[in-house]
Design a protein around this nucleic acid. Structure first.
Length: 554
RNA sequence: GCCCCGAUCGUUUAGAGGUCUAGGACGCCGCCCUCUCACGGCGGUGGCACGGGUUCAAAUCCCGUUCGGGGUACCA
């Protein structure tokens, strides 16, 4: 079975808020599994499975909230797994906290076979020996207990001393493996000391550590392709060695390939940390990144679809993706480009789809009681590691369209096509839609909009005050029966503006250039310098409200 | 200290010895379209870290240097 499919996995530790680097790793694993499933890999193996396992062996740092958030994230992004937590599979359970006995058994086998040994040295003893031998403290463990005699071991055990279990690293040969992303990587012989796989205890049943649980589970779950972060590159020789031992004791069946994905960096040259806002997946979501946009952008970090096309769908990614094409050098997360890519995907959305995705971002502007996203920001800023899970989940919850009033539905339906090219992030819709959703008869004029309220000159040099423009507009609109965008446009143009080129001059027009004619109206209607198209806005607002707002402009 | 990884416009990416006076995208600047803002269209800005090799020929291969990153945990 395992020789017929490529098996990859994503195995985060549930610590803190999901971040973009983690998502990118997950994405590439997902894409490769799906690619192999649909198109086969380079060796003609057709079949791919994506396993999702949780590595919760660090009881201090792990949290249930974090686990739930990871689930929420992957579901939101559509990165569905074939085997793993929640969905099950042949090699469960998929949470390491439920697999402790498995690791103990493997550790025992390793000990019996002589691939691992009991280490009674304490940290202090190791440091003391290093100091005495003139070695720096960073030298680390000196493999001292490897050569303990049976008598010495007995003696320590009788004393009741605690011991860890360490894996023997070959000291006389280089360790080489072929990294999918980086090519051949070699670690010099003798540079890696024997390492701990089980925490200290008196009976050898201490907590198993990542160094053991991770390779053991990969072996047991028949994973044959490991795509993971660059931070794990230097622990790979240890795993390469352990993997050989695991094959010998029958835990692993076949060799495994490694591919180390480059870091996602923040500004400058520092790794994107959990504290950086742009690393926080939920913050991106709150700002109105859509899954399509975020996935597209993240895939672009270290990979590209083609020389001249930056915008692509998950299907295109799956079809083209191959980890051997991933670049080895780290990439910086650029919010501007990420936002621009998101904007492209927003524009590609079906307008019905677009308008519904807007709803969670209109809190405060519509009647229904939606999630307060400002709370999310507050949480993220103050407690990046301890977010309020329920709040996040509320944002994920079902479509709220039906909770809107009929009037709100009407307005949003009419306005959605007007703003679709005007937002890069869904959260920007709120500002654009606010004047349309509001029933205020007098708009509060924003500071930079006030500058638009200036006089214009007509062709004969006569100065026309904006009050005159508004008054003329009101008079012409009052008698307008057919309240549509086109008729409003025609009416106002004939009353205020110069006639279009080639047309006869208007008889009773103010003869202003369009920007002088219409800017004051925009300000009266929206209170803003920037708004959706003016005449459409007027139609949506209706005649009464439009005229009221014009009358109430100071 | 030791080990490992990396280096093309501001950012990202194309480039696997000649097609490169280095291409695309985002950003930035300008112009056009235009009721504002966008969208769309057109144009511009801007880069092979440095030094040695190999070769008729190097962004591309090799070696150094520099700079950046990671590891050197009873974290993952």
């Amino acid at each position: 079975m395992t020789d017929k499919e490529v098996r990859v996995r994503f195995c985060p530790s549930p610590t803190g808020t999901p971040h973009v680097g983690m998502v990118r790793s997950c994405l590439f694993n997902y894409a490769w599994a799906k690619h192999c499933e649909k198109f086969g890999n380079d060796e003609g193996i057709k079949g791919g499975k994506f396993v999702f396992r949780i590595e919760d062996t660090d009881h201090v740092r792990d949290s249930e909230d974090s686990y739930q958030m990871i689930l929420t994230s992957l579901k939101w992004l559509g990165l569905n797994w074939d085997e793993g937590v929640e969905v099950g599979g042949p090699d469960g359970p998929y949470r390491q906290s439920e697999r402790t006995q498995i690791y103990r058994d493997v550790a025992k086998s390793l000990l019996d076979k002589g691939y691992a040994y009991k280490c009674f040295s304490t940290k202090e003893e190791i440091d003391t020996r290093n100091k005495a031998a003139g070695r720096p403290v960073q030298f680390g463990y000196d493999n001292f207990d490897r050569n303990l005699t049976d008598e010495q071991i007995k003696e320590y055990e009788n004393e009741g001393r605690e011991f860890t279990i360490r894996v023997k690293m070959p000291q006389d040969q280089d360790i080489t493996f072929d990294d999918i992303v980086r090519g051949e990587v070699t670690f010099k012989a003798g540079t890696i000391p024997d390492y701990v796989i089980v925490r200290s205890s008196k009976d050898g049943n201490g907590d198993p550590l990542y160094t053991l649980t991770n390779p053991v589970d990969d072996a047991l779950m028949n994973v044959n392709c490991i795509l993971r972060g660059e931070d794990l590159l230097s622990s790979t020789p240890r795993q390469v060695v352990l993997w050989k031992y695991l094959i010998d004791i029958g835990v692993a069946k076949e060799p495994v390939k490694y591919g180390h994905l480059p870091y996602v960096m923040g500004e400058g040259n520092k790794k994107l940390s959990k504290r950086d806002p742009e690393s926080n997946l939920f913050l991106h979501r709150e700002k109105g990144m859509i899954p399509e946009g975020l996935i597209n952008y993240l895939a672009l970090l270290g990979w590209s679809l083609s020389p001249d096309d930056d915008i692509f769908s998950m299907d295109q990614l799956v079809e083209a993706f191959n980890p051997k094409d991933v670049l080895a050098n780290p990439a910086r997360f650029d919010m501007k480009k990420c936002t621009a890519i998101n904007a492209e995907h927003i524009r590609m959305l079906d307008v019905e789809d677009f308008k519904k995705r807007l709803i969670p971002y209109l809190h405060g502007s519509v009647s229904a009681d939606f999630v307060n996203c400002d709370l999310l920001r507050e949480i993220a800023e103050n407690e990046p590691d301890m977010p309020k899970l329920q709040t996040y989940q509320a944002l994920v919850s079902a479509d709220k369209w039906d909770n809107l009033t009929e009037d709100e539905q009407r307005i949003i339906t009419a306005a959605a096509p007007l703003i679709q090219t005007r937002v890069q992030l869904l959260s920007e819709a709120r500002n654009l839609l606010a004047p349309l959703l509001s029933k205020e008869e007098k708009m509060n004029v924003e500071e930079d909009a006030k500058k638009q309220l200036k006089s214009g000159k007509n062709p004969s040099g006569e100065e026309i005050d904006y009050h005159k423009v508004i008054e003329t507009a009101i008079n012409s609109l009052k008698s307008l029966e057919n309240w549509t965008t086109d008729s409003i446009h025609n009416t106002l143009q004939e009353a205020l503006s110069i006639s279009p080129e080639g047309e006869p001059d208007y008889q009773n027009s103010l003869n202003l250039k369009p920007r002088f004619a219409f800017s004051p109206l925009r300000v009266a209607i929206s209170g803003k310098r920037i708004s959706p198209p003016l005449f459409e806005c007027m139609e949506i607002l209706g005649k009464d409200l439009t005229i009221k707002r014009l009358e109430n402009l100071d």
